[in-house]
Amino acid sequence: MRIGVDNEVCEAHGQCSIVDMDLFPLDDDGYSAVGPDREVPEGEEDTARLGVDACPVRALKVLS
């Protein structure tokens, strides 16, 4: 499973990071530091989906 963030859309709500701060790291200003394409470690898929769903502006996507 791969996830990514569109940093043009991210507004630094930080809701993904509450779900899991390791899967969804933030930069110093609170914006997502997930990057455009990141692999989700095996076994963490459900958590990744919860974090993607928590984004209020849909900046995060499940890529595959």
């Binding site: 630094a12 709500h13 930080g14 809701q15 509450i18 933030l26 200003d29 609170g30 928590a54």
Partner: peptide
């Protein structure tokens, strides 16, 4: 809230 102090109990 938002940013580093966003409610940790939000979920």
């Amino acid at each position: 809230g938002k940013g580093i102090h966003a409610c940790i109990g939000a979920q």
